[in-house]
C-alpha cells in the first residue's frame, strides 16, 4: 500500500467538506475492512481517506423509529447482529448477519460501508431491499433519501456521488404477519462469498373469520444478489406471488419466473447456467422457509 493523507473530522459537516466530487482518489472510510484488501491489491490507491471514526454520535446507534428502525451508518455489523431492536423489527437481518463474513470483520465493518461498497455479494442489500429500506445521504449540497432498490448500480458502483456520505438507514415498520427470509448459498467453502443470495418478503390478507376464502399474498418482494452484477428485485417473481396462495405450486412458479428473469454472471463460483438453476432452487427455498 502507498501512503495517503488521512483526515479524521469530528463532525459530518467537516467530513463532507473534505470529500471531493471529482476526485476518485478521495474516499470516506469507516471500518476499512473492504477498502484495505482493494488497496493491497492496488485496485484502489487513495490520495486522501476521510476517516469517520472520530465523528460525534450523529451516525451511530440503533434506534426505534415509528415502529421501524433508524440505523446509524457507523453502527458495526456486530452491533446490528446483537441488537434486540433489530431482531424485533427485522429478524431476517439478525439471521443474515450471523453468516456475514466473520466475527472480526463484523466487529469493525459498518452498515454504511457495507452498503456504499457496492459489492453485489454483500448480504444486507437484498434483505434491506425487501424490507423497503431507504438510506439518507448527505453532502455539501444537503441531504436526500435513496431507496435501497436504487442504491447499487453495478460492481462497486452506486448512485452515491463521490462527495456523498451515507448517514443512516431507515427500515420502516413491518406490517403484522409479514413473512421474510434470506437464503445464502455458498458453492465453495462455507465462509465464501455467496454464489446466490435471495431475500423474500410477503404478506397475506387477514383471512379473519371467513374461513371459506383462501389466504392469498397481497404483496410480495423478491431480491436476488451475488449471482448478478448488482442486487436486483425480480418483478416477474413478485407478480407470480401477488394474489396467489402461499403454496408450493405458487412458490415453484415464482422460482421459475425468477430463474427466467435474472441474468446471472459466470465466475469461479459457477457457470451462468448453474447459477440460474441455483436462483430457481433458492427462491423456492427462501419462500418455503419464510412461510
Amino acid at each position: 500500500m502507498k501512503s495517503f493523507e488521512l483526515v479524521e473530522p469530528a463532525t459530518i459537516d467537516e467530513a463532507v467538506a473534505l470529500l471531493e466530487p471529482d476526485d476518485p482518489g478521495v474516499r470516506a472510510i469507516a471500518g476499512a475492512t473492504a477498502l484495505v484488501p482493494m488497496m493491497k491489491a492496488r485496485l484502489f490507491q487513495p490520495t486522501r481517506l476521510v476517516s469517520l471514526r472520530r465523528l460525534d454520535g450523529a451516525l451511530r446507534g440503533v434506534h426505534e423509529h415509528e415502529g421501524g428502525l433508524r440505523l446509524g451508518a457507523l453502527a458495526t455489523l456486530t452491533e446490528l447482529e446483537r441488537s434486540s431492536r433489530v431482531r424485533a423489527v427485522a429478524p431476517v437481518m439478525s439471521r443474515a448477519l450471523r453468516t456475514l463474513s466473520n466475527v472480526r470483520i463484523r466487529n469493525v465493518a459498518t452498515l454504511g460501508g457495507h452498503l456504499a461498497h457496492g459489492d453485489p455479494h454483500m448480504d444486507l442489500p437484498p434483505v434491506l431491499m425487501t424490507l423497503g429500506a431507504r438510506v439518507r445521504a448527505v453532502s455539501r449540497r444537503g441531504e436526500r433519501w435513496i431507496d435501497l432498490n436504487d442504491l447499487v448500480l453495478g460492481y462497486y458502483q452506486t448512485t452515491m456521488a463521490a462527495d456523498e456520505l451515507i448517514a443512516e438507514v431507515h427500515v420502516p415498520a413491518q406490517p403484522t404477519g409479514a413473512r421474510t427470509w434470506y437464503e445464502k448459498f455458498t458453492a465453495l467453502s462455507a465462509d465464501d462469498w455467496p454464489t446466490v443470495g435471495v431475500a423474500v418478503w410477503y404478506r397475506t390478507d387477514a383471512a379473519g373469520s371467513d374461513t371459506t376464502r383462501p389466504t392469498v399474498m397481497t404483496e410480495a418482494r423478491v431480491a436476488v444478489s451475488a449471482a448478478t452484477e448488482r442486487p436486483v428485485r425480480v418483478p416477474a417473481a413478485e407478480s407470480a406471488l401477488t394474489g396467489a396462495a402461499p403454496d408450493d405450486a405458487t412458490f415453484r412458479k415464482a422460482a421459475d419466473a425468477a430463474a427466467d428473469a435474472v441474468e446471472p454472471l459466470a465466475d469461479l463460483r459457477g457457470s451462468a447456467a448453474y447459477k440460474r438453476e441455483m436462483i430457481r432452487v433458492h427462491v423456492r427455498r427462501a419462500l418455503e422457509r419464510a412461510r
Binding site: 475492512t33 484495505v36 484488501p37 466487529n107 465462509d191
Partner: peptide, 23 residues
C-alpha cells in the same frame, strides 16, 4: 492478508479484529 484466516487476530477494546486490515 484478507481478514479470512484469523492468524493476525488481536483485541481492540476487548473485541477481536483482523490486524492485517486495521490501520
Amino acid at each position: 492478508g484478507q481478514g479470512l484466516c484469523g492468524c493476525c487476530t488481536l483485541l481492540v477494546n476487548g473485541t477481536a479484529v483482523s490486524g492485517c486490515l486495521y490501520f
